[in-house]
Amino acid sequence: MEEEQVIRMDLCSSGKEKPQSDQLAFGRTFTDHMFLMDYTDEKGWHDPRVVPYEPLTVDPSAMVFHYGQSVFEGMKAYLTAEGDVQLFRPQRNFKRMNHSNDRLCIPPIDEAFALKAVKQLVALEKDWIPEAEGTSLYIRPFIISTEPFLGVAPSSHYQFIIILSPVGAYYKEGINPIKIAVENDYVRTVAGGTGEAKTGGNYAASLKAQEMAEEGIAQVLWLDGVERKYIEEVGSMNVFFKINGKVVTPALNGSILEGVTRNSVIQLLKHWNVPIEERKISMDEVYQAHKEGTLEEAFGAGTAAVISPIGELVSHHEHLEINSGQTGATAKRLYDTLTGIQYGKIQDPFDWVEKVEDIRQGTLRASG
């Protein structure tokens, strides 16, 4: 049993100016403090601390720069109308982080301690949570390999870091359908690769297709990397189709990331007795459903947008308009319910919400 650890607090003397809620851009502004924790093979995870947000000092030969051994997560803190702060299913994020850690040969973190560290940091930075409708505080936990070594092997040194960023409403003018291009040339990942891990290389591999998409295309629809006909994800989101009254989403197959929002959507649909299937779904099936008039809705699901309706699919210059380019009833109901739970506006029947106590200072203890 490791010794009980205490988070060391090293607070800045004066804070930065906070941006106006209507000027928030995603991931451009960061709060006054961040959380850091180190790992070595000899000591394990140690020296947890909250320090002023500042550049990291990392050796140029740190293995993360050369072999990409890193993982990350994304979640949000929400401010309710009563002034309370709450998180949405953060336990699943840290469970998934450890799944990613295992795939990338990174030592596991103590999930309970990581959650307490998030709460401590968010409580400290509560004044950074914007109050405008639809805004939130984005939370980015990540782990990087820091050993100064150019050998191709798992690192023996790591840093676990948490940073916070106030973000604006994803839909400034209401939830709107987007145009998606079916990607036929590039693939995101394959089963046996790192697709089911949340690691930076997956996102780097997706940039080329997005860059080459025609103007007006919001995201690309990824197909499987073997047969190139089965749908996997849309952009960096999981994807759902409603066909003839039944919602279908690609089954987890080793190349698809298990999204927290994806899991929440599935649970809600089952709760509402809406038929839901997790299985393979091909573009041919989508084309046929569109031709027969049974393709009722399509939407992505992820942390940033929550629910992103798809109004049009573009493939080989063929345009498939979905639901007359309008947001479908299922997508709207899911969006309203999920955001309602996140902001404390409606009842949470699943115990998904995790409250953050309004304690700005003090120590945090956890067994390693």
Results as ranks from 00 to 15, higher is better:
Gln23Val: 12
Glu82Ser: 13
His271Tyr: 12
Arg28Ile: 14
Thr261Arg: 05
Val314Cys: 13
Tyr67Leu: 13
Tyr230Ala: 14
Trp352Thr: 10
Phe113Asp: 08
Thr57Glu: 15
Glu318Tyr: 10
Ala197Tyr: 00
Gln23Ser: 15
Arg89Ile: 10
Phe72Glu: 03
Gln120Asp: 12
Asp22Met: 11
Gln288Ala: 10
Ile129Met: 06
Thr261Gly: 06
Val265Leu: 05
Glu196Gly: 11
Gly362Asn: 08
Gln219Ala: 10
His290Pro: 02
Ile256Phe: 02
Pro250Phe: 03
Leu164Ile: 12
Phe149Lys: 10
Ala132Ser: 13
Ala77Asn: 00
His316Ser: 12
Ser156Thr: 14
Met9Leu: 15
Pro177Gly: 01
Met9Glu: 11
Thr31Asp: 05
Tyr203Ile: 00
Met212Lys: 11
Gly225Lys: 04
Gln23Ala: 03
Phe299Cys: 03
Gln219Ile: 03
Ala366Cys: 11
Asn101His: 09
Asp358Ala: 14
Val190Tyr: 03
Glu42Asn: 09
Ala25Lys: 13
Leu223His: 01
Tyr67Ser: 00
Val286Leu: 02
Val85Asn: 05
Ala366Trp: 13
Gln91Cys: 06
Ser324Val: 03
Asp110Leu: 01
Leu79Lys: 07
Gln288Leu: 07
Lys246Gln: 14
Lys172Val: 05
Asp59Arg: 06
Asn176Pro: 04
Pro177Cys: 12
Gly259Tyr: 14
Val152Tyr: 04
Pro148His: 03
Thr303Phe: 07
Asn253Gln: 05
Ile7Phe: 01
Glu292Thr: 10
Glu214Met: 13
Lys119Asn: 13
Ile276Asn: 04
Ser13Thr: 15
Ala218Lys: 11
Ile109Trp: 01
Ile341Asn: 09
Lys229Asn: 10
Glu215Leu: 03
His290Gly: 08
Ala205Gln: 01
Gly293Asp: 03
Gly311His: 09
Thr199Cys: 14
Asp38Val: 07
Ala114Gln: 07
Gln326Pro: 05
Asp336Gln: 13
Pro166Ser: 05
Val50Pro: 13
Asn253Lys: 06
Ala62Phe: 03
Arg96Leu: 12
Arg262Ser: 01
Lys242Ser: 06
Tyr343Lys: 04
Ala209Val: 03
Asp22Lys: 15
Val286Glu: 04
Thr363Pro: 00
Gln288Cys: 06
Lys270Phe: 04
Pro60Tyr: 06
Arg28Pro: 07
Lys119Arg: 11
Asn238Glu: 10
Glu233Trp: 09
Cys105His: 10
Arg333Asn: 13
Leu115Met: 09
Asn244Trp: 06
Ala25Met: 15
Tyr170Arg: 08
Glu312Trp: 11
Asn184Glu: 15
Ala205Pro: 00
Val51Ala: 09
Val248Thr: 00
Glu321Ile: 15
Asp38Trp: 14
Leu364Gly: 08
Gly83Leu: 10
Thr194Gly: 12
Glu285Asn: 02
